[in-house]
Design a protein around this nucleic acid. Sequence first.
DNA 1: CTAGAATTTAAACGAACGTTTGAATGAAGG
DNA 2: CCTTCATTCAAACGTTCGTTTAAATTCTAG
Lengths: 227, 227
Amino acid sequence: MDVRRTSLTAHETRNRILDAAQALFVAHGFEATSMRMITGDAGVNLAAVNYHFGSKDVLVREVLKRHLQPLNAQRMLALDAAETEAGDQPVKPHRIVDAFFSSSLDLASGSAAGREFMQLLGRTFTEPSPTVREYLATEYAPVIGRYRDAFCRALPTVPVEEILWRLHFMLGAMSYAVSGIDSLQVLTGVRIDEPDAMQRMRPRLMSFLLGGLRAPLPAGQGTDHTT
Amino acid sequence: MDVRRTSLTAHETRNRILDAAQALFVAHGFEATSMRMITGDAGVNLAAVNYHFGSKDVLVREVLKRHLQPLNAQRMLALDAAETEAGDQPVKPHRIVDAFFSSSLDLASGSAAGREFMQLLGRTFTEPSPTVREYLATEYAPVIGRYRDAFCRALPTVPVEEILWRLHFMLGAMSYAVSGIDSLQVLTGVRIDEPDAMQRMRPRLMSFLLGGLRAPLPAGQGTDHTT
DNA sequence: CTAGAATTTAAACGAACGTTTGAATGAAGG
DNA sequence: CCTTCATTCAAACGTTCGTTTAAATTCTAG
């Protein structure tokens, strides 16, 4: 019943695989990254992935889960903190936005691996693979739910459908911003791979998101200028 | 020297391949879509793709080019019209935004094939394939250049880097909005595949984009409330 | 030291991939 | 009618894919 045997090296093998896979997924995508590329870069045997993870599909999920689970946990904590601080008042919209997106930007600007993961995550949202979609849905469901409710309390005059759309737009803007999109980088001259790119982007993105969130409602059904 | 022989059916074969490929690319992605899936759905022989297009890579480019080239041409025309209308005055920001994004939304809400293509295009921005990136860059370069200049003239007090970032954010928000992202659709309850979804989204997206564009500059270096 | 489980290794598996080939098919031109 | 050329077709090409196997190795527990 001893779990730890050769497990130190075993864990190291696992992590080497996860690291190599993440880098390759960012560079080439899930489908275009082969097991042989992963194990080659990781310096482990080809069979190691199937031994430690079972299949490529599970590996993909594990690569995402490794950083996404803590990220969403922190998003929950950040909203907890904001709600505690607000007492029985609703949390102000810009605090909600900050709680959600600062968690991402912290991860993206913390380390090279974090930035790499956020790039991957941005791409993953457009991934058609059913396995990936299913995992993302279950991982995000509780988080989106709580933030939606927080927004609804903060903006009681705004219809929930409107809030969901704006949340959708904000997620899109951030995902594209952090995932880089080299094609557009070339066009716009904006480089994401410079070390402090995330730090320079952060206030700009937050300002943009808040501006979009506070924009007047399209139907002309009143405007919302809460801060 | 007779070009038209059996070419009526030949063009039909080409289009059948393009249609089937587009639908499959949306559903499964470029890599995960095989030639056999494409030719099977199109009802043509496996060798037809290589005969008519040369390779799978060229087919991917042709699928994108078929609708993206006219789309970007219309973006140019829309900006032409706005500039003509404005005379020697700079075009107002909301007119520029409208010129760029209305072209996309027109395509997305015009037909099922148009919506399908916009979904594909949204995904394509995150595509790591060098061939695809290269094509997108060359196709978008002149368009982005002209719109950047138009924004610079319309907002002379805003630094060009700021404008590029916001253009980047706006593109991200729109791409995600039209490409659907089923995972988040499930979470947010927002469905993109309903027939009039684009029409209902359009004013909301435009309002959001303009709100973001007009947001106060983060550095505190003055705000911009041009309309 | 030894038994035995955990891990690594080299090799091979069948399946699916994009592409190529050469013959069959079809419609126009001389 | 027969040649000609574009197109279609069935079949096969060699390669690479994810996965599996069984032996070799490494490590730990008793």
